[in-house]
């Protein structure tokens, strides 16, 4: 069983949902980013999503675009991100890692080479934001043969006719985008989530995680209870950005601030456990 499937099975047995945390690799620099990454499991992250920096992240809000530009200034490359995963795997062989990014840096690296290098480095799944199922034929054969999960976004706009097609192309877990919009803007209402998650579950056995607009521990706990996990990204990127100096450099507060924000989220997700 893959690390992702193993982790969701273990959490199900525990009777709680997953806390999935997002950070942009190399934000604001390699060493700080790696220190946060290595501290995440102990702080309570159940799955880790690592953003692969891109100049033009169309589905992300200003906070994540700024993080990407900081990361690129710090010298982030696809190869550098994979090295970082390898360095993480040297100390943690259990926590699933998902890379989230855009297609062009992967194309520049070479799709087949990228999938091979990611699998070797210890990556478990990929979210390639701008590759919908209709365009995935260059990617799928490689992810499938390497056992990498290809995780799909499902949006409020994904209608009943389209949903089965998107879900059929998904493995690992389903990433439900809670709002029609970009990352880090507004939050979904409990009612809309309570309606959306069963709609997805009718079509899939896969775990469903909710992301986009989850900022507070209470929101994370609610999402992790309604679904199988909550993804928190922009709130952590904002917490990190708040510790940087005027030139965007890390301070002594950067790593502890991000990790304590993760701890608060993790505590809430654990309290929100369902009977299970």
């Amino acid at each position: 069983m893959s690390r992702i499937a193993t982790r969701f099975a273990a959490l199900k047995a525990e009777g709680r949902g997953a806390l999935v945390t997002y950070l942009q690799a190399f934000d604001p620099d390699h060493d700080t980013s790696l220190a946060i990454l290595r501290g995440l499991p102990e702080a309570g992250a159940d799955l880790i999503e690592i953003g692969v920096p891109f100049t033009d992240p169309m589905a992300d809000g200003p906070a994540i675009q700024k993080a990407a530009l900081r990361a690129l200034r710090a010298g982030a490359t696809v190869a550098g991100v994979l090295d970082m995963v390898r360095a993480f795997r040297a100390v943690d062989d259990q926590t699933p890692i998902v890379l989230m990014g855009y297609y062009n840096p992967i194309l520049a690296f070479g799709v087949e080479r990228f999938c091979g290098a990611a699998a070797t480095a210890g990556v478990d799944g990929l979210i390639i934001v701008d590759v919908p199922p209709e365009e995935a034929d260059e990617v799928e054969p490689h992810t499938r043969s390497l056992g990498l999960d290809l995780i799909r976004l499902v949006a409020p706009t994904t209608d009943e006719a389209r949903l089965p097609r998107v879900l059929a192309a998904t493995s690992g877990f389903v990433y439900y985008v809670a709002i029609a919009g970009i990352t880090g803007t507004r939050s979904a209402s409990s009612d809309s989530l309570a309606e959306a998650i069963p709609r997805i579950r009718r079509h899939t056995e896969l775990p469903v995680c909710i992301g986009f607009g989850i900022r507070s521990p209470a929101q994370a706990a609610e999402a992790a209870t309604l679904a199988d996990g909550a993804v928190v990204g922009t709130a952590l990127v904002d917490a990190l950005a708040g510790t940087l100096d005027a030139d965007g450099r890390a301070s002594a507060r950067t790593v502890p601030t991000v990790l304590s924000a993760v701890q608060a989220l993790a505590a809430a997700v654990r309290l929100g456990r369902t009977s299970g």
Partner: peptide, 22 residues
Amino acid sequence: SRGRFGPFGGRFVAETLMPLIL
């Protein structure tokens, strides 16, 4: 039908946009 001119074109958008362009 996929919006391709040879290898070029297509619909490389996030799922959030896909239903709109369809």
